[in-house]
Amino acid sequence: MTRVSVKVDGTNYEDEVEPRLLLIHYLRDRLGLTGTPVGCDTSNCGACTVDLDGESVKSCSVLAVQADGGEVTTVQGLAGEDGEWTGLQRAFHERHALQCGYCTPGMIMAARDLLRDNPTPTSDEVRHALEGNLCRCTGYQNIVRAVLAASGQEVGT
């Protein structure tokens, strides 16, 4: 067992964990933060994307012990204290950028990472930034529109 100290969505946690414990399982099974789901076992789907120390990561591809001392933000930590959604959350809703919603946490976290780097991306840039996140419902078009809309750009309907 190894001791880890992690701040997740603003709360500090200290736990003894097996070194092999994946960050995603730490979040889901130990902390009960089930807002971030698991969609594959090969790093392809991106459903488990969270923010670790200011960068998007696939939390299936990070050990909990690697996050020791770090700060994690999940989709559950995005809304303001008053529950107010972020621009991306609003845009995903308004643009119908989700259907079953299983990929949505990862999509939003990946899109958030993109907009931090590139506040006004082109539609092509959005598509490439989301290449590591699979959605089976939307065909991506409304996701791209939502990200563009969240960046404050005009988007057709």
Binding site: R20, S43, S61, V65
Partner: peptide
């Protein structure tokens, strides 16, 4: 050796590697 883990962790998750020790150089 665990560097970024983006190759090693997928191998571990699929149980295609069974190291006794993982040395995290991160």
């Amino acid at each position: 050796v665990l560097a970024g883990g983006q190759s090693l962790l997928p191998l571990l998750r699929l149980r295609l590697a069974f190291p006794e020790l993982v040395v995290d150089v991160g």
